Simulated assay, not measured.
Amino acid sequence: MEPGEDVDRQYWSNAPTDMLRLISSRLVAGEYVVFRAVCKNWRLSLPDLHDYSYSSPFSCVNTPCLITFYEETGDVEFFYPLYNAQITQNMDMPELRGSRIRCAIEDWLLMSKGDYGMFFFNPFTKVIMKLPDLLEEFKNSFPSWTFSCPQDSSSSDCFVVGFFFSGFPPMVYMIKVGESIWKIHTFYHDEYGNNKELFFVPHSPVYFKNDNIVYILGHKGTLAILKINENSTEESPTWKFHGKQLSHRKQNSIRQIFTAEDIDNGGILVIFLTHEEGKVDIWRYKMNGEELEKEKVTTLEDKTLFVSYGGSFLKPSVARGLANKIYFPMFHDNNKGVFYCLEKHKYYSFDYSSTNCFNLVQPISSIWIQPSSRNYSF
């Protein structure tokens, strides 16, 4: 041992725990294991991948996780892609049993229960915020939902909106937090040109709170924009429709559609998953005045995209190797998270790669959420 080496080792071996946790939050599974194995002090300062709970440091670094909800028991399973680790959490909350996830904004879930019940739920803080029951005549028959903001101190101006896609334009179910009665808004075909080609399939609407508008994608590639009055749900919202239809060949190839807000560029990203081997196409939909601009996206550069039905978002890459990747709510061999590499056009997990997604498992009730530091004290 060289002179002074023992002193140097003492310095880095006794590095502050907060610093170690900050560094480890940027590492992916295998890298984290190696980092933790450097010395005894580092190993004791950082939890094992399979020992952490949802109140651990992992949930405090604002890393996305996939939540799977088990309707019969009310339990949830958290999957952290950065660590390729899962944990099932017994929530011990009887009111969650028989519920289902509708959509998510950050770490707040909009949930329904039975024919009429609707409420917000935060799985990290275990806070439930009830909404008035849905109207008896319509029950819980609206398949697509969104809301305008997380349920924090400013949530009094939050709108909750559901869509029923059987007609044109879609019916709208809405309430503003603090109101006591839901409102149903129906629209006449003739008022909007009676264009039967512009009907919609269930997917995740994108709410732009600053403008109080919602983007919805038509199944043929057209875009609908719903404008909501910022002061009242009594006044009927208005629809505008933009864009040309996709080719018949493209329409027939689509297996699933996901949408996410494109914060840096405005508009939305539309992710098409095709029947043919599960190939992935991404398009940017952006309004330029009254004209819709569509652009094919071939790279996410230094960002990672997390997509699921009811909750999708684009984030700066938080770990080396995750840039230009898409995380779907899919698993290989039941417990290994899968991402799609836009550069290689392949699906990957830590021990798997393939050009198609046919042998991957997609949980029925799973959605990506973003733990928010405002709800936690470190």
Rank of each mutant, 00 (worst) to 15 (best):
K240R: 14
T238A: 12
K244F: 10
D264C: 09
A260C: 11
W239N: 05
A260L: 08
E261I: 11
F258C: 07
H242F: 14
Q256C: 06
N252E: 15
L269Q: 08
W239M: 00
G243W: 03
D262I: 00
E261N: 04
I271E: 09
N265I: 08
V270Q: 06
L269V: 04
I257T: 10
G266T: 06
Q245A: 09
N252T: 11
I268F: 04
I263E: 15
T259L: 09
S247M: 02
W239C: 03
R249V: 13
W239G: 03
E235R: 14
G267I: 04
E235M: 14
Q256V: 07
L269T: 03
I268D: 03
Q245K: 11
E235K: 14
E261Q: 11
I268S: 03
F258Q: 02
N265C: 12
G243Y: 01
E235S: 11
N252L: 13
V270N: 01
D264V: 04
I271S: 07
R255F: 15
L246S: 07
L269A: 08
E234R: 05
S236D: 03
L246T: 11
L246G: 01
K250D: 15
K240C: 06
N265T: 12
S236Y: 07
V270T: 07
R255I: 02
Q256A: 07
N252H: 10
Q245W: 11
H248R: 15
S236M: 11
S236P: 03
T238H: 09
F241G: 01
T238G: 05
H248V: 09
F241A: 06
F241R: 01
E261M: 10
G266I: 03
E234K: 11
G266K: 05
A260S: 13
N265V: 06
I268V: 13
E234D: 15
R255T: 01
K244T: 05
D262T: 00
G267D: 07
D264M: 13
E261Y: 03
S236L: 02
G267K: 06
W239P: 08
S236I: 05
G243Q: 04
K250V: 13
F258W: 07
Q256E: 15
